[in-house]
Simulated scan of single mutants.
Amino acid sequence: MIGVRAHDLGEFTIARLEEFIQEIKRYGFTHIQLVLWKSFSDIDPYLTNVSTDQLEMIAKRLKEESIKVTVLGAYYNMISPDLKDRILGEERYEKMLEILKIFNGEVVGTEPGSYNIDFSFNERNHSKESYDIVLDSFKKFSKVAEKNGTNMGLEPVYTLTIWNIEVVKKLFNDLNSKNFKIIFDPVNLIGIENYQQQDELIENMFEIFKDNIVTVHFKDFLVKDRKLIRVSPGKGILNYKLLLSKMKKYNINGILDEVPKEDLEFSKKYVENILNTL
C-alpha cells in the first residue's frame, strides 16, 4: 500500500544497487517512484550512458526483492518557453514509455508545466494555448504508449497547466486513450482559495476517475498567514481518513512524496495507523 519516491532515500550509483535496495527494504516500502538519474548519480538525465543490460539488471533485482516500480519518473516542463528544453523532455518521456516494460511499471509520470522556467505560477499557465500544447504532446505520446503497451501518467497541479478536475476531465475526453492515467496528489490540487473544500475535491476525484488513478502522492499541508505550507504526512490538515478510505475502496496504492528522510518512518506509521482503522 505504501511506497516512496526513491530518490528521497538518497543518491546511489549502479554499483551500489544493493545498498539502494536495502534502504528501500529497511523502511518496509513495497513499491517506488523511480527517477533513474536522481537515484543513480552515474545515469545521466537522458539515459545516454546506461545500457539496456544495466536497466534490466536493476529491474531484475527490484523484482527479486518484490519491490514494484509504480511510477517511472520522466518529469519535464511540458509548456517550457525554452523550446529546446521542451523537445528534450518530450524525447525523454517517449524513451521512458519504451523502457517502462523493462521494469514492469505502471506508468511514466510528469507534471503539466509552467511558462516560468522555475515552475512557478504564470497566468498563461491556465490558458487554452498551454492546454493545447499539453494535449498535442500526449497525442504524440499515446502512439508510443499504445505501441509498447505502456501507460502515460500526468500529475495535475493547481498552479500549472492541468490544474483542476474540470480540466483533467476535458483532457481525458479530448485525448480518449486507454493508456492515459492520473497520478493524484491532493496537495498539488489545493490552493488558498479551495483548501476548505478539500473533502469535495477528494470525493470528486475518485468518483470521476476511479481506477484511472494509478497512484496517490502522500503529502500534507498547513495554512499560515494566508499561505499554504507543505509538511510531512501526519503534520498537517489533509483529511487522510477520507483519502485512504477512497484509496482502499478502489485498491489504489500511495507514495510518500517529498518527505524528508527524518520523517519517513513517522509518516509511514501515520498512514498505516489510519489504514488499520478502516
Rank of each mutant, 00 (worst) to 15 (best):
S232Q: 14
Y158A: 07
V50S: 07
K147Q: 12
T13S: 11
I43L: 01
D44I: 05
L189T: 05
I58F: 02
N176I: 09
S177E: 15
D220L: 06
F103A: 07
L55N: 06
S114H: 06
P81I: 11
N194E: 11
E106F: 01
I43D: 05
L228A: 00
N164D: 15
F180I: 14
H31E: 09
V259F: 08
P45I: 01
N77C: 00
K224E: 10
F20M: 02
F119G: 05
L34Y: 13
N273C: 04
K269S: 05
K101T: 12
M78D: 13
Y195R: 04
I202Q: 07
H31F: 01
E65T: 13
L154D: 02
K224I: 08
I21N: 09
K241N: 15
K246C: 04
D132L: 15
L242P: 14
G113I: 02
N276C: 07
S120K: 14
I32Y: 11
I213D: 01
L243G: 03
E19P: 03
S130K: 12
F206I: 09
Y27I: 00
I14Y: 03
M1K: 14
I2F: 11
Y46I: 03
N194Q: 10
F180M: 08
T161F: 08
V144Y: 02
Y195Q: 07
E155P: 13
E56M: 12
R124E: 15
F103H: 11
W37Q: 05
Y240F: 15
N179T: 05
N122Y: 12
V187G: 06
E258V: 02
F209H: 03
N49F: 03
E19D: 12
G105T: 10
Y250D: 10
